[in-house]
């Protein structure tokens, strides 16, 4: 005869264990290295070939020419699906990925950001309001 309650040992032993739940807003250790987060843009490397625009599945990125051989990237965080295809397509490695993932905004306008010069996480100005 098999008795009901086969999991009882496991259940009782969990009482002494720490809960498996990650205390998220306090503990942000969740994302591993190589996570595909927000894009970063190094304007000095960009040659304006627009391969990223061509390959982007959602049309989230737009490269604009702002001066002689100077480019800016407009990124719509609401459209971006964080696949990283633009990074693969970029011939000059001007685009890269960061592991930043807390990108939600209350105001949809704030999702449209401009990635300007600098290899550091661009567009901080707009997204620092969170």
């Amino acid at each position: 005869m098999i008795w009901p309650g086969a999991m009882i040992r496991q259940l009782l032993s969990s009482l002494t264990k720490k809960p498996a739940t990650v205390n998220y807003p306090a503990d942000k250790s969740g994302m591993p290295k190589g996570f595909r987060g927000k894009l970063k843009f190094d304007a000095s490397k960009c040659i304006g070939c627009k391969m990223c625009m061509k390959d982007c599945p959602t049309g989230a990125i737009v490269i604009r020419q702002v001066g002689e051989k100077k480019f800016e990237a407009d990124l719509d965080l609401g459209k971006c699906i964080y696949c990283g295809q633009c990074v693969d397509s970029c011939l000059k490695k001007a685009l890269g990925l960061t592991s930043e993932f807390e990108l939600a905004q209350l105001d949809p306008k704030k999702l449209k950001i401009t990635l300007t010069d600098g290899p550091s996480i661009a567009g901080n100005k707009e997204s620092s309001g969170e």
């Binding site: 994302m31 591993p32 190589g34 996570f35 595909r36 990283g84 693969d88 990925l97």
Partner: peptide, 20 residues
């Protein structure tokens, strides 16, 4: 997530091989 960079839509494939 560690191997591919994402938890669900891994984005691992490309035409002609894999990306990572």
């Amino acid at each position: 997530a560690q191997l591919t960079g994402n938890r669900v839509n891994y984005g691992m494939n490309t035409i002609g091989g894999v990306r990572r």
